[in-house]
């Protein structure tokens, strides 16, 4: 009904214009058509010029170095083109293990972040805006201290004679020190702590946008709190969760410091291995090949996940 109305309005107004200039001729000399088109084009160009600095940076800092790495990965130590780096990756089991560790650490960190971050974001979203700001500050505070400092702080907390073990033994949670660090556990604890804000921020902003009336409406229509959450709140906050999880997961894939310090040499991520190759063998080709494979694997995963979970919107900004 409204559609019909607006079409009508368009029809009459265009009839009006053409009537004023050249009756019956709709294609030809519309008033100012050329100037209006030019104006539109000018605006588009000025918009584009705003994007120029960013585009240049992306080109010089990302496109060129990545292409260069890509190129290097196909060069042998003698400077001849070769596939040996990629062949090695298939031949040696250690590479496969590194990749599997990397994806595992990233996946578990993301899951832990969701488990902690979702209730936290929900809590923040229910608070009055002023209080939410204060609590949000607390969530963001760790961002302002150095990553390295925070990682070593965890080492102090978690080590054999650390504060946590002492405390747990004192209250009788366990009798002998538990190995909390220099392994996967420590790595995950540290990573989850560092990544949490990246999940909470987009999730919180998605939850803030959910109108309170919607939850009222759900319960008014007969939904118990659990069902209202499941049918309304969950689906409406999922875009924020997907966006946050993607950020966390992708950041984890390239993480270096925390697994290196808290993993105690047992958690070998791709980044760790790249450093090792560069430090020990100074082999740019092999290191580049690892980087290229990680990049491609990540893109592939994103592509598949976008298809499966239909979160193109979260990725490409439709929602």
């Amino acid at each position: 009904m409204m559609v019909a109305k607006s079409e009508n309005a368009v029809a009459t107004s265009s009839a009006h214009t053409s009537g004023a200039s050249a009756p019956g001729d709709r294609s030809g000399h519309e008033l100012h058509a050329k100037e209006l088109k030019q104006q539109q084009r000018r605006e588009q160009w000025s918009l584009l010029s705003l994007a120029l600095p960013g585009a240049l940076i992306v080109f010089f800092v990302i496109v060129i170095p990545v292409s260069w790495l890509f190129f290097l990965s196909f060069l042998g130590s003698d400077g001849e083109p070769t596939l040996q780096h990629y062949r090695k990756m298939i031949e040696y089991k250690s590479y496969a293990r590194t990749f599997s560790t990397t994806f595992q650490v990233s996946l578990f960190t993301t899951l832990i972040c969701i488990a902690i971050g979702y209730p936290l974001a929900y809590f923040l979203a229910q608070l009055p805006a002023r209080w939410a700001g204060i609590f949000m500050l607390a969530v963001l505070l760790p961002f302002w201290t150095s990553l390295l400092v925070r990682t070593y702080a965890w080492l102090v907390l978690l080590q054999r004679k650390g504060i946590l073990n002492d405390f747990a033994m004192q209250i009788g949670l366990w009798d002998s020190p538990v190995k909390l660090v220099h392994n996967m556990t420590g790595t995950l604890i540290g990573m989850a702590h560092i990544m949490l804000p990246f999940l909470v921020l987009p999730l919180y902003s998605a939850m803030r946008k959910i109108e309170r009336d919607l939850m009222h409406a759900a319960s008014n229509l007969g939904a118990s709190p659990a069902r209202a959450f499941w049918h309304i709140y969950m689906p409406l906050s999922i875009s924020g969760m997907v966006a946050g999880s993607l950020i966390v997961f992708i950041l984890c894939l390239g993480f270096y410091v925390t697994p290196a310090v808290l993993g105690g040499g047992k958690v070998i991520m791709v980044s760790t291995q790249i450093t090792a190759i560069l430090e020990n063998q100074f082999n740019w080709g092999a290191a580049s090949a690892l980087g290229v494979v990680l990049l491609i694997a990540t893109l592939l995963l994103l592509f598949v996940a976008a298809r499966v979970f239909k979160f193109d919107a979260a990725l490409f900004g439709k929602g």
Partner: peptide, 20 residues
């Protein structure tokens, strides 16, 4: 009585239609 058991229909000022 909690709202979901009252069985009253309500039209909200904001309509509160579920966008998804």
């Amino acid at each position: 009585m909690p709202p979901h058991q009252r069985n009253v229909g309500m039209v909200f000022q904001s309509y509160a239609l579920f966008p998804h």
